[in-house]
């Protein structure tokens, strides 16, 4: 409905994305962060401390020996952050994966069958979305107790409805296409139509959205571990390192500052990527 702008040539979303420096920059950062946590053992002189073995020099400020300082058990903070990143990112990926596995099929079923099945599924979605963000995760994590799997469950159970919504909307836009109707007409089973014909069109938008959601997943994971609902020590994750370091704050400022910076940079990169992605698909929505 933009009437005043003379726009006769429209660059493709892909082109627009490539011309957005912020988007490309964030992609580079994400690859950098992933490389750091994958190659963690080669990027630090203290891989065993990263995993939890105590070191000799406790609470040392950043120096040439320990570039980010050491923690309360004398472990190199850089090593802790590298190995902590593995857990933080792993949990975030698992959360999103769990949400995908629950959310996508439900969305496809709701969109494909419609009627009362759709009604029931979407009302369940409404109930889960009725909880304030984070509160449901905190509540479930508190009742489930600490642990990697419990944490994934606690966050993932509040996460899936978003993907159900996206998947359902996608299915609704493909539901009446000739290829789906032709398949129905030829007596292809519902399951096969949903998995073979509809899933390919639903899968990619949901998968893209879920990747972009990793930033908020990482933030949620960090918040829960900070509250003491994460993994038991010595396995580090970013939120947990901050919660450990809080006791020594603000005197030993590095203990809290650097793991927080790691969370911030990673979440920012994913959110920036998501933002530039969205604006390259839908540039009229402003920035």
């Amino acid at each position: 409905m933009a009437t005043s702008l003379p726009s006769n040539k429209k660059p493709s979303p892909y082109r627009r994305f490539l011309s957005d420096k912020a988007g490309l920059f964030s992609l580079v950062i994400i690859i950098g962060v992933l490389a750091c946590i994958i190659f963690a053992p080669w990027l630090t002189s203290y891989p065993d401390q990263g995993l939890g073995t105590p070191g000799l020099d406790r609470l040392m400020p950043p120096s040439s020996e320990y570039i980010l300082g050491t923690d309360r058990l004398g472990r190199d903070l850089w090593a802790r952050i590298l190995y902590g990143g593995r857990i933080s990112v792993l949990i975030a990926v698992l959360v999103v994966a769990l949400a995908l596995v629950i959310g996508t099929p439900l969305g496809i079923i709701a969109g494909y069958y419609g009627g009362w099945i759709d009604e029931i599924i979407m009302r369940i979605v409404d109930v889960f979305l009725a909880f304030p963000p984070l509160l449901l995760a905190i509540f479930l994590a508190a009742v489930l107790g600490p642990g990697l799997f419990n944490m994934v469950l606690a966050i993932g159970l509040g996460w899936w409805p978003w993907y159900t919504r996206i998947a359902r909307a996608q299915v609704l836009s493909y539901r009446q296409r000739p290829f789906v109707e032709a398949a129905e007409f030829m007596g292809v089973s519902d399951t096969k139509i949903m998995t073979r014909h509809l899933f390919p069109f639903v899968g990619s938008p949901v998968l893209i959205q879920s990747t972009l959601d990793l930033g908020s997943a990482i933030l949620t994971v960090a918040a829960l571990s900070f509250l003491g609902l994460g993994l038991p020590p010595p396995t580090p994750d970013w939120g947990q390192i901050i919660s450990e370091g809080r006791v020594y704050f603000p005197d030993r400022w590095w203990y809290v500052t650097f793991p927080g910076l790691a969370i911030f940079i990673t979440a920012l990169a994913f959110n920036l990527l998501g933002d530039s992605f969205r604006s390259s698909i839908d540039p009229d929505r402003g920035s």
């Binding site: 912020a22 930033g215 933030l219 960090a222 918040a223 900070f226 939120g239 901050i242 809080r246 704050f249 603000p250 400022w253 809290v256 500052t257 927080g260 969370i263 911030f264 979440a267 920012l268 994913f270 959110n271 920036l272 933002d275 920035s287």
Partner: peptide
């Protein structure tokens, strides 16, 4: 426009409990 966009996204990406401590570090310590 670009700067405020970056600002808004940063604000949504920063862990609140961490930024709280950083603010304490700056304004108190």
């Amino acid at each position: 426009d670009q700067l405020t966009r970056l600002l808004a996204i940063s604000m949504a990406s920063v862990p609140s409990f961490w930024v709280a401590m950083i603010l304490q570090l700056i304004f108190f310590k």
